[in-house]
Design a protein around this nucleic acid. Structure first.
Length: 382
DNA sequence: TGGACCGGGTTCTGCCATATAG
DNA sequence: CTATATGGCAGAACCCGGTCCA
């Protein structure tokens, strides 16, 4: 509203992509007169807050930025006298970002426009140490602008990369890490070090031989671990250990296997998930040891939400599969309820005998499953 | 050579709270 | 005081196919 005061200026701005601090043209006192939001009335005891930067608003409008969203997220940016929205836009454009992408990036993380070109160039180069193309970086920025822009500390970023390499993570690991959990690289190195130390300590406490290797292994198995708090990881390990009554070596084995996958679940979620599974299994007449067994062989079962899990199990049971079979091949729970339901129906039609043939057929790719079905259709005696 | 075993690929941000800087 | 930097949180699966062996 307040922003569109002069079409003349709009035209002018759209022509020149030359970067310039945006506010020069509008002295502050003038802008304050334009903005009714903060009339410095007599009753207002606080210092008059500096008003929003008028020309900045215009620039952002031109860029297609969602001003309302941006203002809600980082209002401070709008009151800055000098910003670099044009420079940022041009920079991202040369890297191959579309107009829409740039607008979306700024809408979601307005502070991006406070970074200088030098800063941007440097940060981009650091990311390019890990990524091979600009396009990859652009796609991450589009996905998560905050990951790239939240920190203005390029030295820290460099230290992070060095640190992660020093852990023995190779180029491919680094690439996966930055792709999957880009926030990791905006953490302070200290924070990342803390998590690594935490993992090493856990290994040592459990009597592990090689804490460094252990930490590295957990990170490469669970790329989200470094953007979690050490408290979360510790609590989850305690929860697992206590509720399953695991010995140190059992716990260690679990973590070195697929247990790493569920370490980053929120503490409450893990507990809720565990309790649900426990209850469900008790209801189905399983023994306490079965619970332990299924979690050790298929920890990801705790990743599945209570409702989904119960539905899946019921679905399998209704389809003529026994709990005993599920306990032996928990991986069938990997597949969606929809997938399972469909397959059960197909198998029922051809009279597939789970007692005789087992349930492994449910744990196979679509291609393999279809091939199998075709064979069953031609020679139904199976 | 069918099928069991196993690991890998995909993907996870956007908000809030708090400490710190200015 | 305000703005920035940073930590932390909730949220919640599914699918594919290489390989090896009986």
């Amino acid at each position: 509203m307040a922003a569109v005061t002069g079409g003349r200026v709009l035209l002018h701005l759209s022509r020149s992509l030359v970067l310039q601090p945006s506010s020069r043209l509008f002295p502050l006192k003038l802008a304050s007169a334009c903005l009714p939001r903060r009339l410095c009335s007599a009753s207002d005891q606080t210092q008059p807050v500096s008003p929003e930067n008028e020309s900045l608003l215009e620039n952002l409008n031109l860029m297609g930025v969602d001003i309302k969203m941006a203002r809600q997220r980082q209002p401070g940016v709008f009151r800055k006298a000098f910003t670099n929205e044009k420079g940022l836009a041009q920079f991202l454009q040369t890297k191959g970002a579309s107009r829409q992408a740039i607008a979306s990036i700024v809408s979601r993380y307005p502070r991006a426009i406070t970074r200088s070109i030098e800063h941007l160039e440097q940060r981009w180069q650091l990311w390019r140490n890990v990524f091979t193309t600009d396009a990859e970086i652009v796609s991450i920025l589009d996905r998560s602008p905050e990951s790239f822009f939240r920190s203005s500390d390029n030295d820290n970023l460099e230290k992070n990369i060095d640190f992660l390499i020093s852990l023995g993570l190779n180029t491919k690991d680094l690439h996966r890490l930055l792709t999957t959990a880009p926030r990791t690289f905006s953490n302070s190195v200290e924070l990342n070090k803390q998590m690594v130390e935490c993992l090493e300590d856990i290994c040592a406490e459990l009597g592990g031989e090689n804490p460094e290797q252990f930490a590295k292994s957990i990170i490469s198995k669970n790329l989200y671990i470094l953007i979690r708090s050490t408290k979360r990881v510790k609590t989850n390990i305690e929860t697992l250990k206590a509720s399953l009554n695991l010995s140190d070596s059992e716990m260690l084995a679990l973590l070195q296997g697929h247990g790493a996958d569920i370490l980053d679940l929120s503490n409450e979620y893990l507990k809720k998930s565990f309790n649900n599974l426990q209850q469900k299994m008790a209801l189905l007449g399983c023994r306490r040891n079965d619970l332990k067994k299924i979690i050790i062989s298929y920890p990801l079962i705790l990743y599945i939400g209570p409702e989904t899990l119960n539905t899946k199990i019921d679905c399998l049971l209704k389809g003529g599969i026994t709990m005993k079979q599920i306990l032996e091949k928990p991986k069938v729970l990997d597949y969606s309820t929809q997938n399972i339901t469909g397959r059960l129906e197909e198998l029922r039609r051809v009279g597939y005998d789970f007692k005789k043939n087992g349930i492994n057929i449910l744990d196979s790719s679509r291609k393999r499953f279809d091939a199998k079905m075709e064979k069953l259709a031609t020679s139904p005696d199976e």
